[in-house]
Every structure is written in structure tokens, then in C-alpha cells.
Design a protein around this nucleic acid. Structure first.
Lengths: 334, 334
DNA sequence: GTCCGTTCTGACATCGATGTCTCATTGCTC
DNA sequence: GAGCAATGAGACATCGATGTCAGAACGGAC
């Protein structure tokens, strides 16, 4: 900038005025400064500017894994909102590891992110989060809440959705319904399991632990666990899966084992090709794009000084019947 | 920082020494400064630091769309490399819009990204890219090259892969093979089309334009275009799709139209559930994770001053035969 | 000719850290 | 006890922009 000032024979401040359109610059000065800027290929260093300004126009996004379709769609939605408001987006995957997540949050915050959107990894220390909030870094939590922290959250109706999906299977005549979900320490998994149980109890069916598997959907134990459930004396006639990864896992396994016809299946989370499979898969769809968009808008409002009371948004889920959930069970037609 | 200095009764510089472990600080001073830091909850402002240092430890990633599974896996790989080297990752989707892409690149670069990984949107102005490079922002191009620019690139063997996939169908007795790909202005689409043609010509088959659709896989015209190909007097017995989106598009369409048995299909790009469909889909698999990892490592080396000659990495593709590409065509067994 | 207001411009401090240079203290050798 | 090295600490300039305030040039009114 001082080079430009020297080249056009004015002071540094005047160049700043030109760059920022601050007014009170004569037409002639303006022209000569502009010329110097072009000639020297000058570009304002946003960094220095933001140091002075105290704000970075950057937000951070911390999710479990961008490569998961649910989160990648959410990410895209956040990106779009950020871009629209001229914000930059930092992103990183916590890989469901609270130490890694903490490291990410710390570096985002210390490098000046104005705010963060976080899907907290299980085991995240609330005291740590509170310290970040106190340090002036706004946060909005998505997909999972952060217990003990006063902050905006955007969650899906996990429990209600799972209950609706389970009830749908019951209505189609199933009573032996298995549930496969992520580890119970994961909030969404626990909620969905609770919804499944609620629906069973509401229908007068006793929830049985034998029919429930709670394990990360990528673990090696999955296949064996599914087999074990199938080998029960009174095996399930229907399955509820707790997330898209588990749905894929289960469907792949059933295909590998050559099990035909497929048992009834309702999956939590829609997933690509779910409609192309045969039978097409009935799902409880979330709306990750809406979740991301809402969270981003909430965060940007907070960042620009919105002091309204904390908001907790609960997004409805939607049952999409495609066939796999409508296969009649042994108790249909009673 | 000056607060800490005041609280512990030392100079600002000494605090800096403690924070940076610069040595030459007595054990006692160190302890008292540490105590003051803890008490005041001091955290170094990375911003100011980086202004002084002239480097930001941040890289940017500009792709077509994070929500596309191909790119989301690539993104995750880049993230992991960045995190490992203590770099932050800025990311944004260009949505295949060169103006948007330009805006993203400009803001990444002016906000101090040390380097960028870019999948250039079609129509990106090389002069603009060159200007950014001249301004000191390193770039590595992935998935697509940037013609006229000297910079590292990491590409898949699009042409070779498409040729292998097409030859595979020919070997299974097909001669009327359709190709559905993205707009020909997209580099990968053009390359894959060229590979398809090469394979046909190598087998003595005349490439026919009637059997080729080049259009973005989300456009409304897709369905009609597929139908038109099917209505030809001599319809294709096999299909090659130019990317995962087109594969999904085609499979969904065939299912909606109730076309059974499915024609032979080979898809470029692997995709989730490709193995669960019936028949399972034969694909030419790329390795997006390897692409992302390589690009990130190349970029980080450049950023830390590597001056070796420009590198052009071509990643092999791999044909995964799963069934859909092995359905015998009318000329099999001759 | 003086005074005042408008319009334009520059000097200087500032944001929060780090690099350079200087200086003070200590302990050791000769 | 003079000289020297090793160690510890501070003053000051610096990165590249912006905010504040003061001041210059100019025109018009009295």
C-alpha cells in the first residue's frame, strides 16, 4: 500500500481512502491512485485489515465426516449461506474423536473464526466448549446437542422419526422388529433407539435387547452381529436402521448372504439409490440441507450481534414409503 | 499479551518468549508468566502472529460440489493431510460456475491462503489464474487440468479408464454402446468420451453420434434424451456413463421405465450401493481419496518452498466387474 | 482583507504479535 | 580485578491496514 502511495505521490491514508471508497478524494487524485494500483497490481491484504477490524468474516464447520453424504450435503448448504454473506468457511472432520475435535475447534477459534457450527463428537468436554464461548467464539450446534451449554441448536426429530418408522412397520404387521444403530453414546443413535422403543411399547410390544445392535456402522463386528440376530429362534421380520451407513451395511450384508426375499426395512436417513434398489427402501428422511442452512443463518445472525434468546430448532422428519417398509409381516391383516 | 506482561511484571517480549518457548527465560519468570496466562485465560491471536509472519498455515480447496460423493471423499482426504501438517482448510463449491469460482479463489487468496487446490470450473480464465500465481498463491489442480498454466496437476486416467470400460463391453459382445456424459466443455467428460471413441475405433466399430448424450446429469432433459436413445431403430444394448451422477440418473430412469432385464452398464466412478444393486454395477473406479491426498501433499511441499519442476500425476483407474458389465451382448460368442 | 465552512490530505497511533538490537547481570578465567 | 562468555530481559521497529485528529487549500460572505 505504501508502494502505491509513493508511486502516486500521496499519503498512505489517501490510498486507503481510494481503496475503501471513503469519499473526500478529488477526482484527479482518485484517478492517479487507481492507475498506480493497477500498475503495481496492488491487492489489499485482508489479513492486516481484519487484524485492525477485529473480525475475520470466517466461520468454521466441525462435523463427524465430510465424506458421509448426510454431512456433505449439510456442508454444501452451509457453504452457500456463507458465500452469500461474504463469509469464508473453514471445515474439518472430527472423525468422532473428541481430542481431534478439540484440536480443530481450538485452532479454528484461535485463528479468528467469528463463529463455529459444530456437531459435537461424543465425549466433548462442556467446560472446554464453555471456555471457547467465553472467549467470544459463537457456536451453533447441529445434529447433536451440547448438554450443559446455552447455545443455539438445530436438531432433527430423531426420536419422533424413529417412532414413526417403527410404527409404520408395526402397522404393516410386524412385531419382531430389530434395530441397528450407532454406539449409544452417540446422541442421535440413542434418541432413535428411544423412538423405536416408544413405538413398540405404544403398540404393546415388549422391546427385546436381543433385537438391538448398537455399534459404529463401520466396525468389523457388524456382519457377525447381524448374523446373530438372524439366527435367533424367533428372528426379526423387519429392521429399522439408525442411519444411512447402517442401512447400506445391512443391505450389503443381506445381499451377500443371498437372503431373499428381503425382510422389511425402514432406514433412518434417505440415501442415494435408495429409490433404485429393488425393493426401493422406505426411509425416514432428514433434511440435511435445511439443517445446514438454518444453522448457518443462525450463526451469522449471532456473529453480527443478535442477542435474542437461545433458539432450539427441531426439524421434522418425513417417512417416505417406497416398498421395503410395506412388506406385509406375519401379523398383517389381523 | 500486554495484560499478561503487566500481570506478571515483565515485558511484552518476555511473554512472547514464554509463549513461543524461545529459551533464555529463567525458570521463575517462566512460572510466573505461565500463571498469569492461565489466570487471564490468554490465548495468542494467531491473526496478528500471521500478519507478522507473512504466512497463514491455511490452504483452500475449490471443487465443483462438496455434496458430490466423489468430491466429498476427496475433501476428506485433503482435510486429513492438512490437519496432520497443522494447516487449516478453507473450502467452497464452485457449482461449475466460473464467476463464482473466481470469486472464491480471489477471496481465499486475499484472505491469506498459502495455497489452493482447485478443480477448475469450465471457462476459468487462465490469465486470472496466472495473476493469482504471480501474487504468490501456489496452486495444485485436481481432477481437471488448467491449460496454459504451469502448475502441478493430479488427474485420473480418464481416457484410458473409459477405453477399458468400453472395451470390456465390446469383449462381452456389445457393439451398440451408448455413452452418457457431462457437457463436453467439462474436461473429464470430454476425455472419457474420447476414451470411449478410441475403444470403439480400436474394435472396428464406427462411433455414432446418436448414441452419445453430453449434458449435465441433473438437467431436465436427461430423461427425454435417454428415451430418445432407446427409441432408435437399432437401440443400444449397453451403456457407458461418464460419472457417478449419470450412473444414478440412468439407473433410476431405467427402473422408472420398468426396463427389465437391465441392459449392460459400465459406470465411470464407483458409487455407494453400486455393489448392492441387482445386478451389481460394473464400474471404472477412480480413487478420490488418493487424488486428494496427493494434491494436498504436493501443495504443502510447494508452500514450504519446494522448487522442483512441475509435476503431473496421472492416477490409474480400475475396472471392477460386478455383473452389469458382463451381461452378454448380441455378438457374444462369435 | 478577514473570517468561516467545505473539501481534501497527511501525520500519527493502533490492532497484537515477533525480530533485532541493546543492555544488565552473573560467573568464570587469567 | 579486568575481561569475557553466557544468560536473561527490555526498548523499539515492524507486518499492512484503518481511525482520529489536525491542518491545508479554496471559495464565498461580510
Amino acid at each position: 500500500m505504501s508502494d502505491v502511495a509513493a508511486a502516486s505521490g500521496v499519503s498512505l491514508k489517501t490510498v486507503s481512502r481510494v481503496v475503501n471508497g471513503d469519499g473526500y478524494v478529488s477526482a484527479e487524485t482518485l484517478r492517479s491512485v487507481r492507475a498506480a494500483i493497477d500498475k503495481l497490481g496492488f491487492r489489499r491484504n485482508e489479513f492486516a485489515r481484519q487484524l485492525r477490524q477485529g473480525t475475520t468474516s470466517t466461520i468454521g464447520l466441525v462435523l463427524e465426516d465430510v465424506a458421509d453424504p448426510f454431512y456433505s450435503v449439510l456442508t454444501r448448504a452451509v457453504e452457500d449461506v456463507a458465500l452469500e454473506h461474504d463469509y469464508l468457511l473453514l471445515s474439518a472432520s472430527s472423525a468422532e474423536d473428541s481430542a481431534r475435535s478439540r484440536r480443530i475447534i481450538e485452532s479454528f477459534s484461535s485463528r479468528g473464526a467469528d463463529g463455529l457450527i459444530v456437531a459435537p463428537a461424543r465425549g466433548t468436554d462442556p467446560a472446554f466448549i464453555q471456555a471457547e464461548l467465553d472467549a467470544g467464539c459463537s457456536m451453533v450446534f447441529v445434529d447433536r446437542p451440547m448438554p450443559g451449554i446455552r447455545a443455539d441448536t438445530v436438531l432433527a426429530d430423531n426420536r419422533g422419526g424413529a417412532a414413526v418408522g417403527t410404527a409404520h412397520l408395526i402397522a404393516n404387521g410386524h412385531r419382531r422388529i430389530a434395530f441397528f444403530g450407532d454406539a449409544p453414546t452417540v446422541y442421535t443413535a440413542a434418541e432413535r433407539l428411544a423412538g423405536y422403543r416408544e413405538a413398540l411399547i405404544a403398540a404393546g410390544i415388549d422391546p427385546v435387547d436381543d433385537l438391538v445392535i448398537m455399534d459404529p456402522p463401520l466396525s468389523d463386528r457388524n456382519a457377525e452381529a447381524i448374523d446373530a440376530v438372524q439366527r435367533l429362534d424367533d428372528p426379526p421380520t423387519a429392521f429399522v436402521t439408525g442411519n444411512n451407513r447402517w442401512s447400506v451395511r445391512l443391505l450389503r450384508h443381506l445381499k451377500e448372504r443371498g437372503i431373499r426375499p428381503l425382510p422389511a426395512v425402514v432406514g433412518f436417513d434417505d440415501f442415494e439409490l435408495g429409490d433404485v434398489l429393488d425393493p426401493a427402501i422406505t426411509v425416514i428422511a432428514q433434511d440435511p440441507a435445511a439443517m445446514g442452512q438454518l444453522a448457518a443463518e443462525l450463526l451469522l445472525r449471532r456473529v453480527s450481534g443478535d442477542e435474542r434468546p437461545t433458539q432450539h430448532v427441531r426439524l421434522e422428519t418425513r417417512l417416505i414409503a417406497r416398498g421395503s417398509g410395506e412388506m406385509p409381516g406375519p401379523f398383517s391383516g389381523r
